[in-house]
Amino acid sequence: MTPETPSSRSAQDLARSARAVEAAPDWEAMILRIRDHQDQAAFAALFRHFAPRVKGFLMKSGAEATQAEECAQDVMATLWRKAHMYDPARASAATWIFTIARNRRIDLLRRERRPEPEDLGWGPEADPPAEDVAVLKQESEILHQALSDLPEAQADLIRQAYFGDLSHREIADRTGLPLGTIKSRIRLALDRLRHAMT
């Protein structure tokens, strides 16, 4: 999943991701509208799309419905409050929201702190170049498509690793698959994803 120049991708991938970009609302721009104009309509659109997904994600991780709903509201409120920290050249809206939801889940279900890397000391700066934002958006779409194209057995293990809050060992206990099989399936899945990104 190292960044590659767009020219190294197949025309088919480009066409596919271009269609998807046309179809999808520009969630990243909506977060910037919240940052710049406290735009409640943009927030409402993001909320309708992402809050039910965050709630679904938390319930898959073992939260009860009520708890998951409150937590999803919290996650969306954090998006509003931290919009000034969002960098559309580093993360898609979905990725950024995932990281907020993941951190809340650790706090909620495990009552643990989540150590985060030191902030890069680049300070507040002007918006990143539009080109970088477009490349990140396109790569995110290709990654999304590549995940959908994974064989079900591999996709399932990746989903369990991310949503089930399970270590590889725990996945082995739950699925009855040998640990080695799980590690090699996940490795295969990651290889496929990397291949899709180059």
């Binding site: 679904g56 898959k60 809206a93 990725t95 929201i97 995932f98 790569e139 991310y162």
Partner: peptide, 18 residues
Amino acid sequence: SYDAVGGALLEDVPEAAM
């Protein structure tokens, strides 16, 4: 990039109605 995998999965997670 592993965060981005989480983001892509979030797009397709079964929704739970708010």
